Amino acid sequence: MAHGGNVIAEFTADHRELEELFARIEAQPVDHPQRRVLANRLTAELVRHSVAEELLLCPAVRKHVRDGEGLAEKELAEHVKIEGLLRDLEELHVDDPQFNDIVAKLRLEVAAHVREEEQQLFPKLAASCSPEKLEELGRLARHAKQTAPTRPHLTAPDVPPAHEPLVPGAGLVDRVRDLVHGRRTTG
């Protein structure tokens, strides 16, 4: 699925990419070093996606969707859970038996999160926002993902606006670290 368009299309494209990355990880033989490379890429994509959702989707849901406050809080709680698994995964070598367990747990959490967004949250947002607003949010989401961090950050505040000023700086630091350490985070 191609990126572009409104915020729903943008995040749905992210969801398909994440599903593909999980499948590629699982297609590799156990203990194969390529699993670590793919897990690094998955981590970067999930972090970028989550940051964009926290900066744009959650505030839009709060503002435009009936009962949006509760829906946004549920989104953020799910992000915290997923980020915790990403932190755990980041510490593990591919031959650690926990590596596969955490990838499996992560896939289940992400799949449930995606299902809820696509079946419940996105339709509510589409019904309550103008097409122009959804397009604007899509443009902003693409920009946010370009400057977002590529690693989970334990000390960063999880909710906007507290973490908004930190995103570009943390993203830049992460990209430099990735470059220095040869950590591939893109296709």
Score class of each variant (00 low, 15 high):
residue 162 A to V: 04
residue 61 V to Q: 12
residue 93 H to Y: 05
residue 121 L to T: 10
residue 25 I to C: 06
residue 35 R to W: 08
residue 80 V to Y: 00
residue 113 H to L: 06
residue 77 A to H: 06
residue 159 V to I: 04
residue 160 P to E: 11
residue 20 E to T: 10
residue 181 H to E: 14
residue 161 P to M: 01
residue 34 Q to V: 13
residue 139 R to D: 11
residue 30 V to K: 15
residue 145 K to A: 03
residue 179 L to F: 09
residue 125 L to R: 13
residue 178 D to V: 14
residue 50 S to D: 12
residue 101 D to S: 11
residue 110 V to P: 00
residue 75 E to C: 07
residue 98 Q to A: 15
residue 48 R to E: 06
residue 5 G to T: 12
residue 14 D to H: 08
residue 3 H to E: 03
residue 144 A to R: 07
residue 92 L to R: 03
residue 149 P to F: 13
residue 52 A to L: 08
residue 100 N to L: 10
residue 35 R to L: 10
residue 62 R to W: 08
residue 76 L to K: 06
residue 15 H to N: 02
residue 20 E to I: 06
residue 23 A to S: 12
residue 60 A to K: 01
residue 119 Q to E: 08
residue 183 R to T: 15
residue 102 I to R: 05
residue 93 H to T: 09
residue 4 G to P: 02
residue 146 Q to P: 04
residue 50 S to Q: 11
residue 41 R to Q: 13
residue 72 A to T: 06
residue 153 H to I: 08
residue 74 K to Y: 11
residue 136 E to L: 15
residue 24 R to Y: 03
residue 173 V to T: 09
residue 128 S to R: 13
residue 171 G to W: 04
residue 123 P to N: 02
residue 183 R to P: 05
residue 70 G to H: 07
residue 137 L to V: 13
residue 132 E to K: 04
residue 82 I to T: 12
residue 69 E to Q: 10
residue 50 S to A: 13
residue 107 R to P: 09
residue 63 K to W: 13
residue 86 L to R: 01
residue 38 L to W: 01
residue 20 E to L: 14
residue 176 V to L: 15
residue 87 R to W: 00
residue 107 R to S: 11
residue 90 E to L: 09
residue 166 L to K: 05
residue 174 D to Q: 01
residue 40 N to H: 09
residue 112 A to H: 00
residue 61 V to L: 07
residue 113 H to P: 11
residue 166 L to T: 10
residue 59 P to N: 07
residue 91 E to V: 06
residue 11 F to L: 11
residue 7 V to M: 03
residue 97 P to Y: 00
residue 180 V to K: 00
residue 176 V to N: 01
residue 80 V to S: 12
residue 105 K to C: 00
residue 50 S to W: 00
residue 49 H to N: 11
residue 131 P to G: 00
residue 54 E to P: 10
residue 184 R to Q: 09
residue 108 L to P: 01
residue 24 R to G: 07
residue 74 K to R: 14
residue 104 A to F: 09
residue 131 P to A: 02
residue 75 E to F: 03
residue 89 L to N: 10
residue 50 S to E: 03
residue 105 K to Q: 05
residue 131 P to V: 02
residue 28 Q to L: 09
residue 98 Q to V: 09
residue 134 L to R: 00
residue 182 G to R: 02
residue 26 E to N: 15
residue 46 L to V: 06
residue 77 A to Y: 00
residue 59 P to Q: 01
residue 176 V to Y: 02
residue 24 R to F: 06
residue 22 F to K: 07
residue 16 R to Q: 15
residue 187 G to C: 08
residue 19 E to V: 02
residue 63 K to N: 11
residue 174 D to R: 09
residue 164 E to I: 12
residue 157 P to V: 04
residue 35 R to K: 14
residue 127 A to C: 14
residue 19 E to L: 04
residue 35 R to T: 08
residue 179 L to H: 09
residue 99 F to Y: 05
residue 164 E to P: 12
residue 89 L to S: 05
residue 143 H to Q: 14
residue 17 E to C: 14
residue 175 R to P: 03
residue 79 H to F: 03
residue 113 H to K: 14
residue 31 D to N: 07
residue 36 R to E: 15
residue 148 A to I: 10
residue 155 T to S: 15
residue 36 R to P: 12
residue 38 L to A: 06
residue 37 V to S: 09
residue 42 L to K: 04
residue 4 G to T: 07
residue 115 R to H: 13
residue 138 G to L: 10
residue 117 E to K: 07
residue 60 A to R: 02
residue 15 H to C: 05
residue 180 V to F: 04
residue 126 A to V: 07
residue 2 A to I: 07
residue 98 Q to M: 12
residue 171 G to I: 15
